[in-house]
């Protein structure tokens, strides 16, 4: 029996996506901070079926000493997918994609962290994708920012991430895996929404210049929502306890 590689229908006539969402809808999002006891800071983030955990260790002494920088802390970032996180088992060895994304995510977080405060130290960020359903790097950046705040590391702003895409000609927000695979464009983006600056931007696919501008606007709307959810998640622990007698 051969597998069918026919493209599934991703947009219906009434403008709904294959999972019933409208183009501007985010998937159900869950964020929880401080879930790991050992890490200095940690967070669990879910964008629909995508589930990622981020943990931060540090600031701590950089080892080996020769990788440290005398005027600031170094950031070490690892994006990794668990072997069971994808449809086909993924080998635990770092793939070229994971190596690229580790760099891209580190560079998305660097402008937010006030690293000059901790010369010669190392701030380690570990992101593990437990279940992949599209948007893993953007959920990863979002979780990493929460973990950094949970660790008490001073940041200029939180970093929020979301992916915009084009599916059957329509620009959509928060692509899931099916839309990413069969769509015409996938644009992950992360930003410090309070400061109004972009720290991660990639495009995989084809967009006209007009579509690109529209996609940026759509992304910005989504990022602001993610940002608000991050703030809520960070405050949640304290607002609940205030009611305790």
């Amino acid at each position: 029996m051969t597998k069918s590689y026919e493209k599934p229908k991703l947009m219906s006539e009434d403008g709904k996506r294959h999972d019933g969402r409208l183009p501007e809808d985010l998937r159900p999002i869950k964020m929880e901070v401080g879930i790991l006891k050992n890490a200095s800071g940690s967070a669990l983030v879910e964008y629909g079926g995508t589930k990622v955990i981020a943990a931060v260790y540090g600031p701590r002494e950089a080892q080996p000493k020769h990788i440290s920088i005398p005027t600031r802390a170094i950031i070490r970032c690892r994006y990794h997918m668990a072997p069971f996180s994808t449809h086909e088992r993924k080998s635990p060895a770092p793939s070229r994609r994971e190596i690229e994304l580790s760099k891209v995510i580190r560079e998305a977080l660097e402008p937010a962290i006030i690293s000059e405060l901790y010369p010669k130290a190392s701030i380690d960020v570990f992101i593990e994708v437990l279940n992949a359903d599209g948007g893993t790097r953007t959920a990863g950046v979002t979780a990493a920012a929460l973990a950094l705040a949970d660790a008490g590391i001073p940041m200029r702003d939180l970093v929020a991430g979301i992916a915009v895409g084009k599916v059957e000609g329509v620009l959509v927000l928060d692509l899931d895996e099916l839309e990413d695979m069969y769509g015409e464009a996938d644009m992950p983006i992360a930003a410090m929404p309070g400061k109004g600056v972009i720290t991660l931007l990639q495009l995989n696919g084809v967009l006209t210049p007009e579509e690109f501008e529209e996609a940026l606007q759509l992304a910005w709307k989504g990022l602001k929502k993610i940002y608000e959810l991050q703030k809520e998640a960070l405050k949640k622990r304290y607002t609940e306890l205030s009611i305790e007698s």
Partner: peptide, 23 residues
């Protein structure tokens, strides 16, 4: 008030009391 990284606390001729917790 409970605040988070990036929250704007004040504008203008105000002093930042305890760097680096405020900038």
């Amino acid at each position: 008030d409970l605040v988070t990284p990036g929250d704007i606390l004040a504008e203008g001729n105000v002093e930042a009391l305890n760097y680096p917790y405020v900038i």
